[in-house]
Design a protein around this nucleic acid. Structure first.
Length: 469
DNA sequence: CTGGGGAAGGGGCCC
DNA sequence: AGGGCCCCTTCCCCA
């Protein structure tokens, strides 16, 4: 018989005991303020306390004590409330510090909730729109924990979250995500690359198991107001994995790789997507700045991070273990976490994190920038070949390949300096053609315009266009 | 199933 | 600080 509310009542009882100072055997001092709690509860909730209490587990006759100066009493109050209630009172003002403190205390649950709060506040989590990992402030019933729930629903409502975050703060209740197998159903299409940070950072940014001993910790006072290290798991699934880990893994918490990456972002790669989400075509520079402004409170500044790098100061990413020498590089790096892609390709709708990437893409894909024949791969010049306009895509073919493909008789209305425009695929001879990942986009765009490169109305994107051309 | 090539993403660093 | 270049890695597609 499963009595589902048992654990809730048990937690309520423990919270009552804490508030009445019953059986509290752990005293935590933060900014001179003493908090009392149960070591069993702290042990089960925090990797930091697990490590701390493991070392002192023999002597249980005296209360365990701990003192923190790296976060505020208010922050610890919020965290302790979460430990005993499952509800995390987050607001735009405290989320960064709470996350930093949770990082310090190795409380992945809290970190995950904070990450979700930040992501939803930034309105950058495209996947949330698909209801894959949705946030809803409407839910207050299923888990009984409050106004904010990280669940698996479809009623994503970023506006609500914004309001809650900005105006009133809100209570975050954490629902554990479904098994990883559910994540494998994420809607990456055949031609949709997984978010890069999911792929690359699985190896690069989560390099080694992080042991407490290897963490370079700098007291708050030495910084600009935040903790030095921020250990963040790339994916919430790590929570589950960690939950099943034996205690020794908690002592030396291991950052697990994720099967499919976290919930960070997906983005439109086709004009259809770009059209369906008009706001996507607006560069979100302000959001990067928004997050960037928050950086000082969560940045870590480290020295001597590696033996190879003895530079005195490094900037620590709050979302992963990556450090950089320059703040500007950190700002650039943050885009791989925020999902921000301020540079849209106006030809195909694909978005990029950097202007140079957009430029490379545009030159390669839409301007036939490579002076090689796409068919025979041999070098081709203006004299020995032509530019083919295939939908939004341009490439070069040498005269021989043009002849062999039967394309030398197609549409010579333009001058030699103009691209040879291929007819739509359904009208094209089936001799051969080049398949590529923009074929579908092309067919749609052809219906809308004969122009290979569509202009965009957005003025900011016009600026981008002017930079490209 | 595998290897090669193209495209994209990210880091380091110079200007 | 931002732009840009170079290099490397990763992923995907295709033969």
């Amino acid at each position: 018989m499963d009595f589902s509310s048992h654990h809730t009542r048990l937690l309520q009882q423990l919270d009552e005991q804490r508030k009445r100072d019953l059986f509290c055997d752990c005293h935590i001092t933060v900014e001179g303020q003493t908090f009392k709690a149960h070591r069993n509860v702290l042990f089960a909730s925090s990797g930091y306390f697990k490590m701390l209490l493991s070392q002192n587990c023999k002597d249980v006759s005296k209360p365990a004590t701990a003192t923190f100066d790296v976060f505020s009493a208010d922050t610890f109050t919020a965290i302790l409330d979460f430990v005993y209630s499952g509800k995390l009172p987050l607001s735009g003002q405290n989320v960064i510090e709470v996350m930093s403190a949770a990082s310090y205390l190795q409380m992945t649950d809290v970190i995950s909730v904070c990450k979700m709060f930040i992501k939803s506040s930034l309105d950058i989590n495209e996947k949330d729109r698909d209801g894959f990992f949705s946030l809803s402030d409407k839910d207050n019933g299923s888990n009984g924990t409050g106004l904010y729930a990280a669940g698996w629903r479809t009623e994503y409502s970023p506006s609500h979250i914004h309001e809650a975050a900005e105006h009133s703060g809100f209570i975050a209740g954490y629902n554990y995500p479904p098994p990883i197998t559910s994540r494998l159903q994420r809607p990456f299409t055949k031609h949709t690359r997984k978010p890069e940070h999911v792929r690359k950072h699985r190896k690069r940014l989560m390099p080694d198991p992080i042991t407490p001993a290897c963490i370079t910790s700098v007291p708050l006072g030495d910084l600009v107001g935040g903790t030095a290290e921020c250990i963040v798991h790339e994916d919430d699934s790590t929570l589950q994995e960690e939950d099943s880990q034996p205690p020794e893994d908690m002592v030396c918490p291991k950052v697990e790789e994720d099967e499919e990456g976290d919930t960070a972002q997906s983005w439109p790669e086709s004009p259809q997507h770009a059209e369906s989400g008009e706001q996507d075509s607006i560069p979100r520079v302000s959001k990067a700045d928004e997050l960037y402004k928050a950086m000082p409170t969560i940045l870590g500044v480290m020295s001597g991070w590696t033996e190879d790098d003895l530079s005195p100061v490094r900037f620590k990413c709050p979302f992963c273990t990556h450090t950089v020498k320059r703040k500007a590089d950190l700002k650039r790096h943050l885009r791989c976490h925020t999902g921000e892609r301020p540079y849209p390709c106006e030809a195909c709708g694909k978005r990029f994190t950097r202007l140079e990437h957009l430029r490379n893409h545009f030159q390669t894909i839409h301007e036939a920038g490579k002076l090689i024949c796409r068919r025979c791969k041999l070098p081709v010049t203006e004299l020995t070949g032509r530019v083919i306009q295939d939908g939004t895509r341009r490439y070069r073919l040498c005269h021989q390949c043009l002849s062999e493909a039967g394309l030398d008789s197609v549409n010579f209305d333009f001058g030699d300096d103009q691209p040879l425009v291929l007819p739509p695929e359904n009208e094209r001879e089936q001799a051969w053609h080049f398949k590529d990942d923009v074929k579908d986009e092309n067919s749609k765009e052809r219906q809308e315009s004969d122009l290979p490169i569509q202009g965009v109305e957005d003025s900011e994107e016009e600026d981008v266009k002017s930079q490209i051309t």
